[in-house]
Structures are given as structure tokens and as C-alpha cells.
Nucleic acid binder design. Structure first.
Lengths: 183, 183
DNA sequence: AGGAGCATGTAACTAGTTACATGATTGT
DNA sequence: ACAATCATGTAACTAGTTACATGCTCCT
């Protein structure tokens, strides 16, 4: 149910249309929660019925009209209440790990190719996060209080990507594929 | 759809009942894929209809009878085919990160408590993985070929837990809670 | 007497995915 | 002419969760 809460955080930071939210979920928020636009519209409708958010129609010229959603007082207290609930263990679902574990029963070359692709993805994502960090938080000792959460999550993203990258390197090395990988 | 494939890997390693699979999903497989017993029974039934697995009733004394599932030839080729498909980007869903990002809108002490709990969970899981590694793979240079996938996944688990632990420490330090955390 | 472990499920529900639909504007 | 971006959705489906049901054995 935390898609709701991810949307509330995003709207607490800044009001937005469903479309805007979908783009944020492709970028910064998507760093820890992925959601499709269809799912977002569905959940927004429910949240509006529950009065966690309100919407206002905004006419635009040269572009389709949009509905801008804003968090309500009830939404803010729901979000605060959420932060006070204990967090259960994270639900893991990694296709990549399933494939890796299937190594003795599968296509070794294809798996190596997957590892290489994944390594490249981690490297690209890491570069993107590091660019964001350098741009928005040039001085890590002086992060504004209202950005502390976002900063810490970004730091987590950087760590996760770096960790994933190193894991890929270890895998390639174990499989004796590190020379080709380094090319 | 990769729960199916996670089950196939598990059955390729060794035939098992639904109950056994559920326990494996709590332990080794659960390291990268979580599933409840209800979901497992449901998927097993579908997989049997699709002839990816077969079941055999086994009577037991002093215990309820069980159905032992085994992978079929079709199951093995499905698993091999799966390893050859490209892996999409991982779907992330982290309640913890949502909470952390909600820091400016939430209950700071409760969030700090969450971080501490999570740190302890990572430490416990890490210890468990390291114990498994020491026990089953005392010589990392000589991992048998049929265990290479399992070993690499375990290595990934160790890296992920260590990374998560370090992230928690960084968060506590940023929040000025590291002294109390170290106690 | 009560709880944990073994063992398999059903029923009702919520969450999320995939495919499709519409229609204007801007850029190649 | 075609694709991309803006913008919002519906419909049909699959996956996963939560709650409940049953019953036997072994341990405290």
C-alpha cells in the first residue's frame, strides 16, 4: 500500500498532475519505487475519494488540460502516521538472481550477457545519481534540512548502484569473463 | 512471472513438497525472492497443469501425507529458455526509502527507530549469510561448478546486507544519532 | 492444556501489468 | 508522413496478500 505514501511524499514536496507524478516515478522517486501511469491514475482517484488529496482542473494553451493534485491536511497526517509505523522486511523479487542461480541449468553465455548488460545499467544509473548529487548537493556537509530525506535516499541509491556494479564484476571474474568485460 | 522460475530452480536442485518450497523461500531462495505458501500452492497447481512439474503423493507416518513435486523435461527447457531471455530493469519497492524521504513531513524519532531496527536486521542477516558461506564454501577458490550460481547469489546477498548496513550507519550519522546507535 | 511444526488448501481481496483508446502539438 | 511529448484514462488480466480452515504429532 505504500504507493499511496510515495505519492503523498511527492505531492508534499510539490503539487503535480498524474502525468507529472508518472515522470517523477521514472526519475527521482523511481529510485526506490516504480509505478506505471495507469496505476498512478487509479490510486490518485481512490486517494481523492478518501480526501487525502484534492484536484484542480487547469486549462492550458497548446496542450491538453490537466488536473493538478495537492495533498490535504488529512493526507499530511496520513503521511506522518505512516512514518511512525514499523517497517516490515523488504520484499525482494530479483529476476536477475533467479537467472544467476539457474546457471547450472541454463545458457551460460546468455547469462554472462545479462550480467554485462546489468553492469552497464548500474554504471549508467550510478553516473546519473552522482551527477544529481554533485549538482543539487555540492556540499554534502551543508544539506538543507528539508532535503535531508531526499539526500539520504540518493546516497542509498548511489550505494546500491555501486554495490550492484561491484557484484557484477565479481560474477564476471568468477566466470572467467572479466577480461572480455573490461574491454 | 518469475516465481515460476524460482520454483523451477529450486525443484531442479531437489524435488520437494509445497511446504518444503515455502521453507526454502523463507531461507536460501528467499534471499532474492519472497513468496507465501498460499502463492506457492497456487502456482504449483498451474505449473502441474502446464506440465512443467509432476507430483507424486507420498504417505508418511506420524505426519500428514505430502505431494512431492519434481521438475519435468519441459520444466527444464522452460528454465533454460528463461535464462536466455533478457532481464528487464529490477522493480524496486522500498517502504523504508519512502519513509526516509518523508523525513521532513514525519516523525523523526520513529524514523530513527526504523533505521536502527533495519540496521539490526541487516546485521543479523549478514551474520547468517556469512555463516552459510563459511560452512558450505570454506574455500571460495574451489566452489563446485554445480554450486556456482548459488554461491554467486549468496555473495550478492552478503554484499547487499553489508551495503544496507553501511547505509544505515551513514543515515544515523547524518541525523546525529550515531552515538546512541553505537551503544 | 497449549503451542509449534508438519502439511495442504480455499475465498475474498488489493495491487500491479498489458493492451488499448483518444487527441492536440511540436520537431525531423 | 511519422514519431515524440503532453495528458488522461478504461478494460481485462495476472500476481500477490490476508484471513480462514483442517487435522495430526510432539514437546513443555
Amino acid at each position: 500500500m505504500a504507493l499511496e505514501h510515495a505519492i503523498l511524499v511527492s505531492l508534499a514536496e510539490r503539487s503535480a498532475s498524474g502525468y507529472d507524478l508518472a515522470r517523477r516515478f521514472d526519475a527521482s522517486i523511481g529510485n526506490f519505487w516504480k509505478a506505471s501511469h495507469q496505476q498512478i491514475y487509479k490510486v490518485l482517484a481512490r486517494m481523492e475519494a478518501d480526501e487525502l488529496v484534492t484536484s484542480e482542473a487547469v486549462a492550458q494553451e497548446g496542450r491538453p488540460d490537466k488536473k493538478v493534485y495537492a495533498i490535504t491536511a488529512a493526507g499530511r497526517s496520513e503521511l506522518a502516521a505512516f512514518t511512525a509505523t514499523p517497517t516490515g522486511p523488504e520484499v525482494l523479487r530479483s529476476d536477475f538472481a533467479v537467472k544467476l542461480r539457474a546457471l547450472p541449468f541454463g545458457d551460460r553465455d546468455a547469462i554472462v550477457a545479462s550480467v554485462r548488460r546489468r553492469r552497464a545499467d548500474h554504471a549508467a544509473q550510478l553516473a546519473e545519481y552522482e551527477a544529481s548529487a554533485a549538482r543539487f548537493y555540492p556540499d554534502p556537509e551543508a544539506v538543507p534540512a528539508d532535503h535531508l530525506g531526499a539526500w539520504l535516499v540518493l546516497r542509498g541509491g548511489i550505494r546500491a548502484e555501486r554495490g550492484g556494479l561491484e557484484w557484477c564484476d565479481e560474477i564476471l571474474q568468477s566466470l572467467g569473463e572479466d577480461r572480455r568485460a573490461a574491454r
